[in-house]
Amino acid sequence: MDDRADDYTGEVTVGGGADVRELAHLTITKVAVDEKMSNNCYLLRCRETGEQLLVDAADSAGTLLPLVGDAGLRTVVTTHQHWDHHRALAAVVEATGAEVVAGVPDAAAITEQTGVPVTRPVGQGDTVTVGACALSVIAIAGHTPGSVALVYDDTADGGQHHLFTGDTLFPGGVGGTFGDAAAFQQLIGDVETKVFGTLPDATWFYPGHGSDSTLGAERPSLPQWRERGY
């Protein structure tokens, strides 16, 4: 199944409908929550087993839980420790009993802020599964110490790589480092080597806010991002 021919755009608005992408073995549902922050949340469902995984229970359990539905939720991955990415974590985990996954350096802060234990801390090269589908963990420091991205390889079925970046990479630049020059150098270095240095241009990425893009569309701008310092 070639997902490049689908009608998914990734353009979602708070209060509007979800956008759904059907891959050969995985369904990706994107929804935006919270008018102020406009966070993206991604529900992944294995088409073979029906198992589901949520990337960022950012807000609005009343929006997320109906998406989960009766199929249940096996896992919530929190991409990083910032408050706007886990406001619904406690409610979603209480309702579903889902396992909580986060990057090792951010795990304690997420638990402190939410009261929810991180049941599986992960790092570079770890694998998170959703049914029969495997997502590889990329650890990207700089925006926070323990930010993680997840990559799903659909190329065996005629598709592309799919990368969930949290707030580490957006169309037009990397995530914020709040004036910390050393943190920016860490972030841009990790993004260049671990993302652009390992994944092809056709890789479609799904950020924590706003529209999606591909690595090929963003790659020519890497020198400009490094020069401007954000």
Rank of each mutant, 00 (worst) to 15 (best):
L222E: 00
L26H: 01
V76C: 13
G97T: 03
G15Q: 02
Y8L: 04
E227S: 09
H86A: 09
A57V: 06
V33F: 11
A71V: 07
V77M: 01
A182L: 04
Q185G: 08
L23W: 14
W225T: 00
G175F: 01
A217N: 02
G123Q: 15
H209N: 12
L44A: 11
R45S: 07
D106S: 14
A182E: 14
T198D: 00
T75M: 07
G216F: 02
A88I: 10
A18T: 15
T96R: 13
S211K: 14
G158Q: 08
E94A: 15
Q224T: 13
T168K: 06
E112G: 14
A88L: 03
T79M: 11
D157Q: 05
T111W: 11
G210L: 08
A149Q: 06
T75C: 03
V93S: 05
A132D: 15
V128L: 08
H82A: 02
L64C: 11
A109F: 03
P105D: 15
S211C: 05
H85N: 10
W225I: 01
T155K: 02
W204R: 14
G172P: 05
P66K: 05
P121L: 03
L67V: 05
A61S: 13
E227K: 07
Q160T: 15
T13E: 15
G62C: 04
V195W: 09
G208D: 03
E51S: 06
Q160H: 10
L23V: 07
D2H: 06
H209G: 11
E192M: 07
L64G: 07
N39G: 08
V130G: 06
T13N: 08
L163K: 02
D70I: 09
E94Q: 13
S136D: 12
V104S: 13
N39F: 09
G97C: 12
L215N: 03
L54A: 08
Q113G: 13
L215Q: 04
T75N: 03
T114M: 12
Q113S: 02
L89R: 00
V130E: 05
L67E: 07
R21I: 10
P117V: 03
P200Y: 07
G229T: 00
A98G: 04
S221K: 09
T168I: 15
R228T: 00
F164M: 09
V68E: 10
A58D: 02
D157E: 14
I110D: 09
V14I: 04
H25C: 05
G229Q: 02
G173A: 01
Q185A: 01
L44Y: 15
H161K: 06
C46I: 05
Y42L: 03
M1D: 04
V20M: 01
D180I: 00
T155E: 11
L163R: 10
D6F: 01
A139S: 12
E227V: 00
I188P: 00
V151S: 07
G50W: 10
D2Y: 06
W83E: 13
T168F: 02
A107I: 14
E99V: 05
E192S: 15
A202M: 11
